[in-house]
Every structure is written in C-alpha cells, then in structure tokens.
C-alpha cells in the first residue's frame, strides 16, 4: 500500500491522467485507479470529491451533469486545456523524479 503522503502527492496527476483519456465521474475515477494499481492505491471514497472541486476551482477541469443509462443523474468531469498543460508539466516532473530514483537505485545495485 502507498503511504499517505505519496497518495496525496500523486492524486492530482492520477485524476488528470484519467480525465485526459475520457470524461468520467467520481466513482468511475476511483474504480479506475484501484484497478490500474491492482488494488494497491485505495482512497477514502469521500475524499475524491473535494479534490475534484479543487481542480475545478483552479479551472483545470470542468463539470456537467448527465443522465446515465439507468436514469440516474451523475456529475461528470472533463479536462480543460489548462488542465492538459498542467498535466504535461506534472509528467515532466514525475519522469524526472522517476529517472533520478532509477539511476540511484541502479547505482546501488551495481555497488553491491
């Protein structure tokens, strides 16, 4: 299981990455994260909505209500242009951290 700090740090890029592929709603986003991480990343379910609201306030995503096939109304989210730019920037930062860690860990392996 991921630590609390890492979950918090990765929450924005995770949500934005999912929304960059397709519009989605809270429940589906959580489910996707859970499936993609093979149940390793699990969020407290009520916590995703304040995050979505925050991203919306920052104008990275936008929301709209849609009626699903079973007649229920759901609040969907889609990424905005500014959100895509933000995600690109985040990708670069995560890749940088990833590559540094990779190198460090590889070095460590070589030393032993």
């Amino acid at each position: 299981m991921l630590s609390k700090d890492l979950v918090a740090a990765s929450s924005r890029p995770l949500v934005l990455s999912i929304l960059s592929k397709n519009e989605s709603y809270g429940y589906e986003i959580l489910k996707t994260i859970k499936e993609q991480s093979k149940q390793q990343i699990e969020w407290k379910e009520g916590m995703i909505y304040p995050l979505l609201r925050k991203l919306e306030n920052e104008e990275l995503i936008e929301s709209f209500w849609k009626t699903s096939d079973n007649g229920r109304k759901r609040k969907y989210y889609r990424i905005k242009k500014s959100g895509e730019k933000y995600l690109e920037d985040q990708k670069k930062q995560w890749e940088l951290v990833n590559s540094v860690l990779d190198q460090l860990w590889e070095d460590k392996v070589c030393l032993t």
Binding site: K44, E45, G46, M47, Y49, P50, R53, K54
Partner: peptide, 17 residues
C-alpha cells in the same frame, strides 16, 4: 463506511470552501 464519516468529509470540504 467507505465514504467516510461526516466529520472527515466536512473537513475536506472546508479546505476547498
């Protein structure tokens, strides 16, 4: 239970509102 209790939900919404 999965959704979390009222206090923790409110605490998160306070941060965004």
């Amino acid at each position: 239970h999965r959704m979390g209790d009222r206090r923790s939900i409110n605490a998160e919404y306070i941060k965004v509102n």
